[in-house]
Amino acid sequence: MQIKNILVATLIGFIFWVLLNNTLDPLILAIGAGLALILALLFCARCNVFSELKVTPAAFGYTFLYLGVFLVELVKSNLDVASRVITPSLPINPGIVEVKTHLKSRMGRMILANSITLTPGTLTIDIHEDTLYIHWIDVQTEDKQGATEKIVRKFEKYLEKIYG
């Protein structure tokens, strides 16, 4: 488990090094690999966040599908909030609701919370065990079950496949 964690962290650091340098010179690639390994050993030896990652072809496929769904949601809800902003009467009815998630892993919960925050209209304020507290700009239902259906479900069904 620990080895997989360090390997994934090294890979991420190396990809960033290649993107920043934008060359394929072997010497620079070797320096980057060494640096990424040292940094992963220093910082990721104790926090085993990446060990929960599933590395299977199905998880890869669902990651790309999730990115697509997420981008579509991002644009749709941005247009929604933008239209609220420029309407002269300012049609908002905000409130803080609680929703429940089925995700068990910390990585999956973090990505769920960040996706909820990035789509405008919903903002994660805190997470406590499996309950998320969400500031919602247009509260349609105050009930926990209904809010879960409306906010979380569309992301969760893909994240469940990726992180379990």
Binding site: N78, V81, A82, V85, I86, L90, I92, P94, T117, L118, T119, P120, G121, L123, H135, I137
Partner: peptide, 20 residues
């Protein structure tokens, strides 16, 4: 930026401002 100016409280300003 317009949303940042028009919204009534801090939470709605975060919603409109940083996300858009």
């Amino acid at each position: 930026a317009i949303g940042l100016l028009r919204m009534p409280d801090s939470y709605n300003r975060i919603q409109a401002g940083t996300k858009a």
